[in-house]
Design a protein around this nucleic acid. Structure first.
Lengths: 197, 197
DNA sequence: ACCTGAACACCGTTCAAGT
DNA sequence: ACCTGAACACCGTTCAAGT
């Protein structure tokens, strides 16, 4: 009963709360995370968490921020096609690994506001293709949307008769082939237009 | 008090239940639909619904089925590029109009099992491009995924600084341009390969 | 056969009370 | 300043009881 004021194992910081939330999500899924369970997991009154986080959506925004932060940056020396594919595959892996959180972010802007993948490197890579400027953003978003659509379809029991993830990843890679081919064709048409007046 | 056995206004069929569910979803959003509110809306004990529908997910599967059924078929005489775009735009409109339901379907296979958009006409259109057979399905799924990604991003407050929906629809149309260009290029490469051995 | 209503095991969130 | 615990207003679902 002596040193209870040393360094209380109870500082209950936002960081520890997010740690615990990520742990529960990884273990029980996002639907298994409740504010009450979170308190219990932290060895604290279920409602204590509300002193550090305004509400559940803010907590999920913080979880999103941390999750997005784990995406590794692109290889800047690679040609633009390689960088686009790199970005797409890496984000695909991230979304597949955090499907429920991505869905929650698409359903609630406050959760999504916690963090989005940084699209600047992707946009920069697409820009290098030579596409007219007004088509750069739409084509970058096409990549983002294809990632979301494909990665969120994982586990929809539709498609893939046999091997599951692997098939879908390969199919997604084919999709990137098509997008890159399309960007190349449209960029060539543009350079044709501008070089000979 | 006489004719209470004529034709009781209480037959409470599955159809009437789905009607009411769609009405509530349209009015209050999917998050505004509860089994209890549904019963009240039908002028019946909240729990009576469970006599006709096993659980909420089955109800949402039925709602999905009805919603999917509203997609109009393609114009079969149009060239394949036009049919692909037609399919994409029509499905895009449907998903935008039923974002929450689509998200619920992506989160829960039992809900999605209620109905998916019929991809056969889309696959048939893509097949006409001349793409090698093993690339037909992946490219059709690319279209489906691009629709999901783009339509679900509507309302994410990201993108579109100005005009909202209209911009995103136009950007999506640009995305379809790229996909069609990509398919064309890959199909040409294939015909090159097969005609001259 | 179909509807009722109490009950169970949960939710997120608020707020007065404690230390 | 921070934590507690009762309370509020909900959920989906089960089940014995009614008609």
């Amino acid at each position: 009963m002596a040193d209870s004021n040393r360094s209380d194992p109870h500082p209950l910081t936002v960081e520890r709360i997010v740690d615990a939330a990520c742990l529960i999500i990884e273990r029980d899924g996002l639907s298994g995370l409740s504010m009450r369970k979170l308190g219990t997991e932290l060895g604290v009154d279920p409602m204590a968490v509300y002193h550090h986080v305004a509400h559940k959506r803010e907590l999920l925004a913080l979880v999103t921020k941390r999750t997005i932060g784990t995406m590794t940056p692109l290889d800047p020396s690679a040609p633009w096609e390689v960088r686009v594919r790199q970005w797409a595959i890496r984000y695909w892996d991230l979304v597949v690994a955090h499907r429920e959180l991505t869905l929650a972010g698409l359903a609630d802007p406050e959760i999504a506001a916690g963090g989005r993948p940084s699209t600047e490197p992707l946009i920069a890579a697409v820009a290098e293709s030579g596409l007219p400027t007004d088509l750069i953003e739409p084509n970058a978003f096409l990549v983002v949307d294809a990632v979301h659509g494909s990665a969120l379809a994982v586990g929809s029991l539709d498609r893939h008769d046999t091997g599951g993830h692997v098939d879908l990843r390969a199919a997604f890679d084919n999709g990137i082939d098509t997008i890159l081919a399309g960007i190349t064709l449209l960029a060539d048409a543009e350079s044709e237009r501008t070089t000979r007046p």
